[in-house]
């Protein structure tokens, strides 16, 4: 392809950032280069070893490239690589480390819905979905990807500041023997034991138990 003279400094910190298996390649511009640097990206499936160019990320000036579609099979592992161009010069290809979507992704907190009676709170938790190409595509819950997925749930009595922590495998929790007419705040986290993956805690959902009749 008539490669140019490659003396441009390399792109830096080439790495995947992955959330719920939305896998985006990120990098930093070569040191000492201002605007005008363009990039191209390629990737490969480990064990197949044929580099494949990503057409949508050819001659781009952004420092990221979404490779979610190309790395969606989480039973495979991948490498990606970036090359920079400026004023007729180019850099070397710079590779990521080996990327394993199953172990290297981050997981969002679960969604929470809460309802109450006069002395109990019912909590329903929903694990996030795996990234998908389009809304029409079938949804895959991360629960299917990580069968050992559990939820850590925190319930705080706003009045007494007393907190309970529960660790559950199914997605519903009823907290009984609560005080009527009292505000409670719930937040939850996803915990996968192996591979070890923890989401952050969700935003707090507060609800009051009904007043005594």
């Amino acid at each position: 392809s008539g490669e140019l003279y490659c003396s441009l400094p390399n792109p830096r910190n080439v790495h995947f950032e992955s959330i719920n298996m939305k896998n985006v390649l990120h990098w930093s511009a070569p040191a000492g280069t201002g605007n005008g640097v363009l990039y191209k990206v390629k990737y490969l499936v480990y064990g197949v070893g044929k580099w494949i160019r990503k057409p949508e990320c050819r001659n781009i000036n952004t420092t990221w490239c979404d490779l979610s579609s190309e790395t969606s099979d989480y039973e495979e592992q991948y490498y990606a690589s970036v090359k920079a161009f400026l004023n007729g010069m180019c850099s070397d290809w710079v590779e990521t480390t080996r990327f394993n979507p199953l172990t290297d992704t981050k997981i969002d907190p679960p969604m929470i819905s809460v309802s109450s009676t006069d002395n109990s709170i019912s909590i329903i938790l929903t694990a996030p979905e795996k990234w998908k190409r389009s809304p029409e595509e079938e949804s895959i819950s991360l629960l299917q990807v990580y069968p050992g997925l559990q939820y850590n749930v925190s319930v705080l009595n706003k009045k007494t500041k007393k907190r309970w922590l529960f660790s559950i495998s199914n997605n519903t929790l009823v907290v009984p023997w609560l005080e009527p007419g009292t505000a409670y705040c719930v937040s939850a986290q996803i915990h996968v034991t192996t591979p070890l993956l923890d989401s952050g805690f969700s935003k707090e959902h507060c609800i009051a138990t009904l007043k005594d009749k």
């Binding site: 490969l44 480990y46 064990g47 197949v48 070893g49 044929k50 495979e76 490498y79």
Partner: peptide
């Protein structure tokens, strides 16, 4: 070596 996997090839 990117083009060979011991376990997956």
């Amino acid at each position: 070596i990117r083009s060979l996997s011991i376990l997956s090839h």
